[in-house]
Computed example of a mutant assay.
Amino acid sequence: MTPQTLYHHGSRAVQDLVGVRELADHVGRSVSDGIRPVAAAFLELRPMLVIGCADPAGAVWASLLTGEPGFVRATGPHQISVAGGLRRTDPLAPALAGEGVPVGTIALDPGTRRRVRLNGRARPTPRGLAIETDQVFSNCPKYIQKRGLLPGAMPGRPSAPRRGAKLTGDQRAFVAEADTFFLATVHARGADAGHRGGNPGFVRVPSPYEISWRDYPGNSMFLSLGNLATDPRAGLLFLDWRTGTTLQLTGTARTEYADDGSRTVRFTLSEAVETLGASPWSWTAPEYSPANPGQED
Rank of each mutant, 00 (worst) to 15 (best):
M1H: 14
P3T: 03
Q4N: 08
Y7T: 01
H8W: 08
S11K: 09
A13H: 05
L17P: 00
V18S: 03
V20S: 03
E22H: 09
V27C: 09
D33S: 15
G34L: 03
G34C: 03
V38W: 05
C53M: 02
D55H: 00
P56L: 02
G58C: 06
A62F: 12
L64A: 08
T66L: 07
T66F: 05
T66S: 14
E68T: 08
F71T: 00
V72P: 04
R73G: 00
R73H: 14
A74F: 15
A74M: 13
A74I: 14
Q79R: 15
I80P: 00
A83C: 02
G84I: 01
R88H: 07
T89P: 09
P91R: 11
L92N: 08
A93R: 06
A95F: 10
A97K: 12
A97S: 13
P102A: 13
P102I: 11
T105Q: 10
A107Y: 07
P110C: 07
R113C: 12
R114E: 12
N119F: 07
N119I: 06
N119M: 05
R123Q: 11
P124S: 08
P124D: 09
T125L: 07
P126Q: 08
I131Q: 08
T133R: 03
D134K: 10
Q135P: 00
Q135R: 15
Q135S: 06
F137N: 11
C140W: 13
P141I: 06
K142P: 00
K142H: 13
Y143T: 04
G148N: 13
L150K: 06
L150D: 12
P151L: 02
G152N: 10
A153R: 15
M154A: 14
P161D: 10
R163G: 01
R163E: 07
G164N: 02
A165P: 00
K166S: 10
L167A: 00
D170N: 04
Q171A: 14
Q171M: 11
R172D: 04
R172S: 12
V175S: 02
F181D: 01
A184P: 10
H187T: 01
D192I: 04
D192P: 04
D192H: 11
N199K: 07
G201F: 10
V205H: 01
P206V: 14
S207G: 01
Y209V: 05
P217C: 14
N219V: 05
F222R: 01
S224V: 10
S224Q: 06
G226N: 10
N227Y: 15
R233N: 05
L236G: 07
L237H: 06
L237F: 10
L237K: 03
L239M: 10
D240N: 15
R242M: 09
T243I: 04
L247F: 05
L249G: 05
A253W: 01
A253V: 04
A253D: 02
R254V: 08
Y257T: 08
A258I: 01
V265E: 12
R266N: 04
S270I: 07
S270W: 02
V273L: 11
G277H: 01
A278W: 03
S279G: 13
W281S: 05
W281A: 04
S282Y: 14
T284W: 11
T284Y: 11
T284S: 15
E287F: 07
Y288T: 03
P293N: 12
G294T: 09
